[in-house]
Design a binder for these strands. Sequence first.
DNA 1: ATGGGTGCAAATCCTTTGCACTCGG
DNA 2: CCGAGTGCAAAGGATTTGCACCCAT
Lengths: 154, 154
Amino acid sequence: MKVDGAKLLEEFRRYLGDHNLPATHQRLAVAEAVFFAGEHLSAEDVGRRVAKRGVAVGTATIYRTLDLLVRAGLAKEHEFGEGFKRYEPLAAGQVHEHCICSSCGRVTEFSNDRLERMIALLAEEVEFRPDHHRLEIYGVCRSCQQLNPLARAR
Amino acid sequence: MKVDGAKLLEEFRRYLGDHNLPATHQRLAVAEAVFFAGEHLSAEDVGRRVAKRGVAVGTATIYRTLDLLVRAGLAKEHEFGEGFKRYEPLAAGQVHEHCICSSCGRVTEFSNDRLERMIALLAEEVEFRPDHHRLEIYGVCRSCQQLNPLARAR
DNA sequence: ATGGGTGCAAATCCTTTGCACTCGG
DNA sequence: CCGAGTGCAAAGGATTTGCACCCAT
């Protein structure tokens, strides 16, 4: 999903200011790495990306900052069944779902209002007050289908 | 989701036989614990449950057997963001989704054919061949809403 | 200055693995 | 009998935490 990295970074600065939290260069470096990433990064990915830009940030700080981004509502945490978490930048109102290729791991996204409404409705039908959800579809992506037309998921 | 534990156990025995795998009492105890559980159990839960029935099964074996159940298609693995996995018995064709209470952790289930069809359709729209999916709705369950009408998720 | 932030390394937590021993078929 | 299964304890991998030192405000 396309997001405006610069705008998110701006919002993050405002968030830090509003909460009396210092805007350290480590925090900004981590935030930038996430906001300008075109994919879902793991904590390790973030570390590599940050290091590549010349700023070495300790592992603990990376995790602490990722947490901060999530709490600030600027990033979303994902668990794609790999044994570790991934993060993606999140512009307000950008609800979307993920298709994960069981063959190559590539993630394809899509969004659909009817789907969102139906999910909310179905939850309410079992007297549940929905806040947010996570939908992951596992299967075979376009390019893997071409490589191997018979590819089966799992 | 209601499942016939006895039938699943029967299927598991058949699976073991068909694959030339010994039906050890540890395997049967773990399978029984999962199949007759009314909820989604963690590996630790399974261990406790099995121990309570008098059979002490090593941790490694519990994990190995849970894996076996999943591969046999008789149990499903879940990751509800708690940092560990949970397992539930799975009768064939019993697709259903989960609502997880952010306040008490209780899991409510539901199923809806229209939803399933729509999910498959949307995936195909982005040229993805869906195999299975995972939908988790986070929010506040019925009883937590009553305890605290203003409860917000997260 | 000064309270929170950071890095490092140790600690946790869940899960997996190596290996000698045991058992189901 | 015998190869696969099991238990134990050690190993692993991701994430968290304790603590002395450092830096934005």
